[in-house]
Design a protein around this nucleic acid. Sequence first.
DNA 1: CGAATGATGCGTATGCGATACGCTAATTAG
DNA 2: CTAATTAGCGTATCGCATACGCATCATTCG
Lengths: 229, 229
Amino acid sequence: MGQAEYDLLWGEPHRNGRGRPAALSRERIVAEAVAIADAEGLQKVSMKHLAERLGSGVMSLYRHVPGKDELVVLMYDSLMAGPLPLAEADNWRDVLRHWGLGVRDLFTAHPWALGVATGERVMGPGEAGWVDAVIGRLTAVGMPAELGLIAVLTVDCFALGAVRPEIGGAGSETEYFQFLTDPAIRARYPNLAPLAEPGTAAEGSMEDYFDFGLERVLDGLEHYIESRQ
Amino acid sequence: MGQAEYDLLWGEPHRNGRGRPAALSRERIVAEAVAIADAEGLQKVSMKHLAERLGSGVMSLYRHVPGKDELVVLMYDSLMAGPLPLAEADNWRDVLRHWGLGVRDLFTAHPWALGVATGERVMGPGEAGWVDAVIGRLTAVGMPAELGLIAVLTVDCFALGAVRPEIGGAGSETEYFQFLTDPAIRARYPNLAPLAEPGTAAEGSMEDYFDFGLERVLDGLEHYIESRQ
DNA sequence: CGAATGATGCGTATGCGATACGCTAATTAG
DNA sequence: CTAATTAGCGTATCGCATACGCATCATTCG
C-alpha cells in the first residue's frame, strides 16, 4: 500500500501514442469526486455515484485510478495544488498568521479533507509544493532557515486540530456542548458549567478561539526566536 | 442523527425487572470493539467479527447498540473515561505539559481514535469529565478561571494535530517524506530538501517536534497571562 | 402454579459498495 | 490490412450493515 500510493502520487503517466483515446481522465475524475464530497460529503462519493455524474460506466474509472482509497488520496492532494494562502507581508508573523487562517479556510470549505489529513498518508506533490512555498516565504522575510519547517508544522498542527469546531454541522461548537443545557448534567461538571451561562462567558469566547490559539502559538514561536539570539 | 447520538451518550438506560436477562452488555461490546481496533485497526471492527469475538450472533449486538456509527462514538468516549493524565505539579505549565503528553500517548496507543476525534461528534460524558478535571486542576494551581478552558483547548488542538506523525505506520515521519529520496524530485522543493541531508538537519529535528511545538504553545500561553496582568 | 408480559438472542433476507475478470471498441504503427 | 495497444464497461462475487420476525427465557400476575 505504501509503495503503491507513492507511485500513484509521484509516478509519471505513460502513453505511447497507440490505443484508444481516453474519454475520461484522472483529473476529471478527481475533480468530480471533490465536487461530490464538497456538496454531499465524502461518504456519498461511491464509484457508482461518481460514474453516473461523469456519464460513464463504473468500471471505467478503474482505468484511471487504482481504487477508492487511492482516489481519496488524490482528491486530498488536488486541494493542495490550488492557490496558496501566502501573504505579501514583510514579517514572518503575518505570513504565518495568514497561512494558519488559510489552512482553516481550506478545511472549512472542504470538511471531508480533515479526516484525510489526520489519517495515514504520504505527502504528495501538491502538499509538498504548499509547504515548500511557505518555508521559502518565511526565510525570505527573515525567519532563520532551520526554523522554517518546524514553525510551519507547529502552526499547521494547531490549525488542523482547531479547525473542527469551525466546521458547521454536528461537531460544531453549539452541538458539541449540547449536554450543558441539562441542569442536572451540568452540575456534574462545575468547571464547564460557566460555558452555559451567558454573562460569565469564559475569556476569548469559543467563537474566536481559533484566532486566540493561533496568536498564542505565534507568541510562543516569537519568544523562542528572540531567546535564541 | 445529532439527537440520537446525544441520547445514546447521555441518556439513562432503563430496565423494569421483567424480561430475559441480558447475556451481552453495551460495556462488553464496546470494550471488545476497542480491543479489536487497537490490535487490528478500526477497519477490522465489523459487526460480524465483533460478534464472533463475543461468541454471539451478529444481530444480537443491535439490542445494545443502535448501529455501527454509534458504536464507534461509544468506543471513543470509553477511552476518555479511562485514567486522566493529571500531573501532581503545583504550577499550570507542568500540568498542561503533562496533559498534552498524555493526549499524545492516548492517541498513540489508540490510533483509530484520531479519526473519530477529528470527525463530527458531540461531547460524551467521558470526554466532558476529562476536560472538566484538567480545568479544575489548572485553576487550583493558579491559572485564572476564565482562561482554563481556552488554554486546555489550545493545547488539545495542537496535540491532536501533531500526534499523527507520532503514530507508526504509513503517515509516520519516514514514509511521509519518502519522496525526498528521489534527487530529481527533491530539486523541485529547495526548502524541503535539507530534510534529506543528514548533516544539515533542521533545528528541533522531526523526532521531537511534538515536544518542541508543545513548549511553544506553553510559551505563548505564559506570555499572554503575564501580559494580562 | 400456569399463563401473560416484556426483553433478549439470533437466523434469514436485502441491498449497497468495491472490485476482479474478460470481452468489445477504437486507434495507430508497420 | 493486420497486429498491437489501450480504453470502456457488463457481469459476477464478496463483504458489510441492518430490517424483520420468530424463538427463548425470566418475571409477575391471576
